Amino acid sequence: MSETASKAGQVWAHVGQPFVNPGYDVIVAGAGRMGAACALYLRQLAPDLRLLLLDEGGLPNEDGATILAPGVWSGQDLPAAWQAEAAWVRAQLVTAFGEVGFEDRPLLEFHEQEADDTVASSDLQARFPILSGLVQVDRLPFARLDPRAATYRPGAVALACAQQAIRQGADLMLNAHATLIPGGVQVERLTVTNTHQIVTHETHMLSAPQVIIALGAEGPYAAEHDLGVHTAHARAYRQVPRLNVSSDAASPILRTSGLTLRPQTGGFTLVPAIHHRDPHGYLPQGGHLTGVPTGLRRETLEDLVALMDLLPALATEALELGRSISDVPGAWLALPGGSPRGRPQHQALPGARLLLGGPLADVLGLSTAYDLAASVAGVQTRPWS
């Protein structure tokens, strides 16, 4: 094994640590779940490549979509051709990263109409007593059950991937804003003044034969703005309000009309459906409920109001509306264009590779990161095939 492969990487967490560019073969901009996983798989597949992982915040970045991702794994509704890949991701979450909060939880998806794979909702009430207080089973009399579904913490996956990548030789720089340039990146090392202003402490121009853009929803914009490369990808702002109805380790994941109720920290996190892309420059706006301003964006509020008859708890004080947009957690979500069902993807661009998660990142994000790492490493391997 080479010295590069056997030696742990360097971490630059703050500007007090002097940086001297040792020269890199690969720079990964963005240390969320997708970027950190890609960095780890690159260390495993091509340990001789010198690799730098960058992130503008901490690890994991609390402003990124990784922290607010639902962390719901389910093979339900996936095409048959994707099932083996999704199963490989599930196995990775169970065994490869340590403690990421992985918990088996059945997923119940409720419907008004019967289908070949549905069961009577009333038959599930004895097994899941919590349904009596949440779902009007007479209005949603049919349900599909995914007994292999599970929940986990995407932020913990990002942290574990980055830590393993460092132990296996990757370098990491935090508090570093990356601007794409031809053949590399311009890195601004950020610091905070005594008046709490974020300023650029120093700037470095780093070149590398391979640059991976893993900036989440900001990735396509960075490619277009910095490199002048047009992409077909979009983004949407998704909030995850909370429903304060008690949940425990036996509570299932619930879903109806695109809304997911994910058991979390003794209650439920509400993950709304994504209806459309948001135009560039869009600023999310709150809505009104019976004349009272709320912190939920208008489109999300309208969805919840429409579901109040089916999920009565939404019409109670258990729903946290927030007083402003900032009171209700939210983040920009990438919407990969040109891929079926918006599945995660990677794309070769002039001078860079773009890596995107999106709505199916919980289920297929790790395999997409692995696939890109294998492509950069020049190896033909897909362990789920």
Rank of each mutant, 00 (worst) to 15 (best):
V28T: 00
S2Y: 03
A69K: 15
P47H: 15
G58E: 13
M34A: 11
T66Y: 07
C38N: 11
D25K: 01
G58M: 04
L51C: 13
I67W: 08
L42A: 03
A5N: 06
G32D: 03
E56C: 09
L51F: 11
P47V: 09
P22I: 07
F19V: 07
D55Y: 09
P60F: 02
D63C: 00
D55M: 05
L49E: 02
G30S: 09
A5R: 12
G16E: 13
L51Y: 06
V11M: 13
S6N: 08
D25A: 01
P18A: 08
L54M: 14
D25N: 07
A31S: 15
L52H: 06
I27H: 02
A65Y: 05
D55N: 14
G23V: 05
V15K: 05
P18D: 09
A65W: 06
R50N: 02
A37L: 07
P60R: 05
A46Y: 03
L42V: 01
A37K: 01
C38R: 01
G23W: 06
L52D: 02
L54G: 09
E56T: 11
A65I: 11
L42Y: 01
V11W: 14
A29T: 08
T66M: 08
E3R: 10
C38Y: 03
P18S: 09
L53Q: 11
D55P: 07
A39G: 13
V15E: 12
A39V: 08
Q44M: 15
Q10R: 13
S6A: 14
R33M: 12
Q17W: 10
Q10M: 12
G16Y: 13
V26Q: 01
W12I: 14
C38V: 04
G57Q: 06
E3Q: 10
I67Q: 07
L40A: 10
L59Q: 03
L53V: 12
G23Q: 05
D48M: 00
T4F: 01
E56Y: 06
A69T: 15
Y41E: 12
R33P: 00
G57A: 06
G9I: 10
V26R: 00
S2M: 07
V26L: 00
A69I: 15
V11I: 15
V28D: 04
T4N: 04
N21D: 15
A13W: 13
W12G: 02
D63A: 01
R33N: 03
G57K: 08
N21L: 00
